[in-house]
Design a protein around this nucleic acid. Sequence first.
DNA 1: AATATACGGTGTATTTTTTACACTAAGTGA
DNA 2: TCACTTAGTGTAAAAAATACACCGTATATT
Lengths: 232, 232
Amino acid sequence: MENIPVRFESIFSADCIIFGFDEGELKILLIERNEEPFKEWFALPGNVVYQSESIDEAAERILYELTGLKGIYMEQFYTFGEVNRHPKGRVITVAYFAMIRLNGQKELKPITNYAKKAVWVSVKDLPKLAFDHSEIFKKGFEKIKNKISYQPIAFELLPEKFTLTQLQNLYEVILNKKLDKRNFRKKMLAYDILKELDEKQKGVSYRAAKLYKFDKRKYSKYFHNELSFGKE
Amino acid sequence: MENIPVRFESIFSADCIIFGFDEGELKILLIERNEEPFKEWFALPGNVVYQSESIDEAAERILYELTGLKGIYMEQFYTFGEVNRHPKGRVITVAYFAMIRLNGQKELKPITNYAKKAVWVSVKDLPKLAFDHSEIFKKGFEKIKNKISYQPIAFELLPEKFTLTQLQNLYEVILNKKLDKRNFRKKMLAYDILKELDEKQKGVSYRAAKLYKFDKRKYSKYFHNELSFGKE
DNA sequence: AATATACGGTGTATTTTTTACACTAAGTGA
DNA sequence: TCACTTAGTGTAAAAAATACACCGTATATT
């Protein structure tokens, strides 16, 4: 790579799978395209990587433009470079996933001009997506399914204070299987990465559960130990 | 990404970490650069991705030009896109690792014109590499360390017929730790992905060991079960 | 006040997996 | 035949994963 003998006209871009957890469902943020090709199709949010920014910065910018959020956990997971993945030219795209806290406030005003609107769609009933985005989604979803089993990324999707039942539900939704309540709690608490708060859930019409926080400090301390959640 | 509003002059390339196992050491194939920048430095083999080929194809081509080998196990692991990673312009590179069987025949005549020569260097004493290639190597090495623990990729580095001791040595070298012989064999054989041959090792000045083959058919059968080698 | 409802919260026994550990067997070369 | 070197083997203990069911407590209803 390191010589620049020939310059081709190629574009690179970053696409983002933005995960959110809401009403017990795992959702992603899709845009409805305003332009050909694939006009009126749903697509993953994405954009060209500018000359002056790294790919990571491009991904952050895309997320920011769409959601107004910064400092979100994002991770690059794969680069898609088939010759004909874009009908209008050679486009290589680097795919990221992000996880954001919805907290109920799902209103989003997309700034990008090529999108009609942005919507949260449950991963259980995604439509066919533009370009090869269905394939990109599939690979990214596999990645996070795998990753939550050994890294504490699930917390990024929950409110800062959450109950163990909420956490378990999230694992169950992502892994698409039931987990045993007692074993889940035993294991999760044994990792000692949660901080039990003096607070309880509010506004529920039954016994309120204790709230917990993810304790980053404790986690970093044992960072080298891989975790293993949801492996029953 | 999906509109092409502006065209930037950017290059994308593929770089390869080519692993080989030889004389009890894990090695990678480096080229010595013939041109500025980083003239006479060692670098990972890499090249521009042509307009007419996918990134995977580019990686295969790079490997082929350097080694004459085709059909080798390769995997994309990360894309590096910092703005200033190449002093002469914006170059984004998609990194792959490959694993090849050395079988003693280490002679290689590099075809690429920008390399003086290609050499096998033990991962234990790599020099500083050109560009951000040291960082790329580090990430790729982490990846395979991790990956051999749950996928049978180590076999790609061994001759087709190998002894259990050779296999264990390879694991030990990659993971950089001693494994218990009995536990290693027990576990490995329990996975039932090896085929015991009627043949024995030859040319050794001690009791010859049984030879085994990796049995792809058996492995595919249980493909969904992740393995877990080297986890003592 | 009594009762119904719904989720919160807890422990133990069993099975499976992982780990630790050391000697005899077989082939080669002198 | 003897010395040397690696091949090949089993068991016990510890740790981790799994399966499993009931009472507690806050709220809502009458």
